[in-house]
Design a protein around this nucleic acid. Structure first.
Lengths: 296, 296
DNA sequence: GGGTTCGATAGGGAAAACCGATCATGCTCG
DNA sequence: CGAGCATGATCGGTTTTCCCTATCGAACCC
């Protein structure tokens, strides 16, 4: 039954029987049989399908929530028992929004020093993906924006607030200033993240509030590309302070604070809400509180 | 895995492999193998045992809580899916303290009228047993004292407050009075419930507070015995109002309120805490609120 | 010290789980 | 409009797991 629920969760995640099957390390016929068996056991159809995956039925939606809770609790049981044997050990997978990668590294370094037997995996993902990755057990925790997320099913620990820096060459006209407003960037040549990334959308909102329509001449989903363009051409970009500091190190680039110090998005750790947490997660949340900029 | 957890819960409840096995409808060797397999899977010993059940290990205690949560959620998943198919139907088992049996009947009658397809089972049990019966799924809900119970893992709905009545023959000396104090009963011939029942302990507390040491000449664990003795001999007894009213009907007996109207124990419905509740339980809790004496 | 209770172990038969191969359907693209 | 492809269901056979009966050995109880 438990394995059937895992199958169900996998299919709901992948929206595809074949992919879900390889993800589970079983064959597709086995998976099909498992789902059918689960449906028989519960007496309701869970998945619409005729020659192709067709989404969850309403009952399926409902059952999915229970399945996640049950499977999650079962994993936690195992995790907790392993903790009793081996102490803090095992793997910890964390999905991180790209602009928080430097902070994530800071956290993971600190955590690894304290708990050397825990192997950590940091994955860069869009903030829109992170919550669902937590929900269906693709990762154990995430680092993302805390402000606009549904807070119900997650535990959170704030890490820092995003402050934006304008990055330009040292010989650029702006380089002399020690602070610029969003409106000052009207008409400037900017290279920015692609609009599918939340960081870009946040920056867009700032521009909008300042009555400026940003003209991004170069777009990329990689912060490295942005900085490289700034360095090579006469472009400028806007990045969170830490990321900017990290990428600019040793290069002839200037960082200038943008906008006023207020109203910045909070970035923090997001973990599945569960009472109590696994030992590792508890340790991670504790560590996040310690490393955090925010006195909370 | 889920069935192994059920086995584990059963053994923890029965504290005996053989009994647990028959309760589960399997043989003892199967059960033994199941437990061992669960222990292997979790990598920890759960139960002390050498030729005989020896209690849970600390890890076992911990695992038991998770097992209950997981199995409970799994049952709820099934229950919810069945509800989606058939509406409110199935079985509802309720454990009731003896002195609340008349109230339980009132509740069950009302509930059955509204939801005729739900079969109800009412079991008389001591209040000390009821919570653990709920925890290990022997019953779906209970009716018991709400005041001194750990409230954390249970949902409750108050039904009524216990008011005590002195019951005596119409020709007894006390019969004329319209109210008596606990101290007035000093030295009187009383027949009461046995001291292992919480109702008796509550009455004892009242006596103690009034500086009276009760002399119960006849004790029984059956309220019927108490009333029969009052009717036949020159005994008196003390019972909750509703139960007294029910048992005295049509007999030449008097009921006289005992003590002042304050500080009486609250009796109510107790259900396993779960978010959300099963449809049946939700309906039952609603019904309890409707039938209740207490305007809450 | 014989009888009893309780859980572990051994062995065999039934059930199931799983896989590879194949089929049926619906979609895409030339 | 037809060939090719993608996707999930179905089938047959093999392997694994499950569960029962029978039995054993230790602890317990007069």
């Amino acid at each position: 039954m438990l394995d059937k629920l895992e199958m169900f969760i996998a299919v709901a995640r992948e929206e595809h029987f074949g992919r879900a099957a390889v993800g589970l390390g079983i064959t597709q016929p086995t998976l099909s049989a498992g789902i059918k068996q689960l449906e028989d056991q519960l007496g309701v159809q869970l998945i619409f399908r005729g020659s192709r995956y067709g989404g969850l039925t309403p009952e399926g939606q409902n059952a999915l929530e229970w399945a996640r809770r049950i499977v999650g609790d079962a994993r936690q049981l195992k995790e907790e028992m392993r903790f009793k044997r081996h102490g803090l050990a095992g793997q910890l997978r964390i999905a991180v929004i790209p602009t928080a990668l430097t902070w994530a590294a800071k956290l993971s370094a600190q955590f690894s020093r304290k708990h050397p037997r825990v192997r950590m995996t940091l994955l860069s993902h869009a903030s829109s993906e992170i919550l669902s990755m937590i929900e269906d057990f693709s990762v154990d925790a995430g680092i993302s924006y805390l402000d606009n997320e549904p807070v119900g099913k997650f535990s959170t620990a704030p890490l820092y607030r995003e402050h934006y820096m304008l990055v330009c060459r040292s010989d650029a006209p702006m380089a002399a200033r020690d602070r610029v407003g969003w409106h000052d960037l009207d008409g400037e040549k900017l290279c920015l993240l692609t609009p599918d990334m939340q960081n870009r959308r946040i920056i867009n909102q700032h521009f909008l509030a300042a009555g400026v329509t940003p003209r991004a001449g170069i777009e990329s989903n990689s912060t490295v590309v942005l900085i490289a363009n700034v360095e090579d051409g006469d472009w400028m970009t806007v990045l969170p302070a830490d990321m900017a500091r990290f990428l600019c190190a040793g290069k002839p680039l200037c960082m200038i604070p943008v906008g006023d110090a207020e109203a910045h998005k909070t970035v923090g750790l997001v973990a599945p809400w569960r009472e109590p947490h696994t030992p590792v997660l508890k340790a991670l949340l504790t560590e996040a509180g310690r490393v955090s900029d925010l006195s909370r």
